[in-house]
Computed example of a mutant assay.
Amino acid sequence: MIAAVDLVVPVKPLHAAKTRLRGAADGGLGEPAAHARLALALAHDTVAAVRGCPAVRHLLVVSSDPVVAAELGAVGVEVVPDGPVSGLNAAYRRGAALLRGRDPEAVVGALQADLPALRPEELCGALGAAATLFAEGVAGRAFVADADTTGTTLLLAAPGTPLDPRFGAGSAAAHRESGAVALTGGWPGLRRDVDTSDDLRGAADLGLGAHTTGVLDRSSTP
């Protein structure tokens, strides 16, 4: 297993995050506060799984949302604001640059913030698989495709290799074409990112983390 990996997790401002999930936390009403609670819960459960994986040395969240900074900072997570360039890939590049500035030989990774069914052992398994590829010189970058096989939930770069994130529509193909190797383990919770209500139901079938479960239980209480 990789001895130490530094991970970057960007979190959008809650009012703008996960827009296709609006209404999932309050029976379709789409009330902003309820939606923000769900978006924050997804991030909380992702972060909790990351912190449970002993192969992760440092977790850096990139977010300019003050609620995200306060909530995750309260549980001991380092949060830095977005830089002058907006967008998901810019947030990943900023985080990776900060981490590599502290340790130029670090393994760095980019993880999505909407993985409420992620288990620490799944993340550790993927990190271990990447470690094997890096040690054998097979590739300098590796990624995990999402459940639909078109997106990316995790991207890793070996020591001395730029992260070069290419998240967005068709990111799995973009990462593959850029030279990253797809990791082939099962890891259903790591692959089940949540963009839609159907995705959320799929994550629920795997078993949601405590924060997301709490928000959805609250929405179903009369």
Rank of each mutant, 00 (worst) to 15 (best):
F134E: 04
V61N: 08
T153M: 13
A34R: 15
G30K: 12
P81W: 03
P104W: 02
Y92S: 06
A117F: 00
T132F: 00
D45V: 01
V80Y: 00
A142F: 00
P66S: 12
H58K: 12
T153V: 14
P84T: 08
A142K: 06
A33Q: 15
R51A: 09
D148C: 02
E78R: 15
V85E: 15
R22G: 01
A117M: 10
L111P: 12
G101K: 13
A69K: 09
A97F: 06
R94Q: 14
P13N: 09
L155A: 14
Y92G: 05
G23T: 09
G87S: 07
A131D: 13
G137M: 09
A147L: 08
L38E: 10
H44K: 08
L42T: 00
G27Y: 13
V77M: 13
H58L: 08
T153A: 12
F143L: 08
D114W: 02
L21D: 02
R102C: 13
G125Y: 00
A25V: 07
L111R: 10
L118R: 08
L118T: 04
G151S: 10
H35N: 10
T19D: 07
G140M: 11
G87L: 08
P116W: 03
A48R: 15
L118C: 05
D103L: 04
L98R: 15
G23R: 12
T150D: 12
R37N: 15
P13G: 10
D65S: 14
G83M: 06
C53N: 13
D148T: 15
G137Q: 06
G87H: 12
K12W: 06
S64I: 07
P116D: 10
G73Y: 01
S86V: 03
A130K: 04
A24H: 06
S63L: 10
A41V: 05
C53F: 03
G30A: 09
V75H: 02
P84V: 07
V77C: 04
L99Y: 07
L154G: 02
A96P: 06
G109Q: 04
L127K: 01
P116K: 05
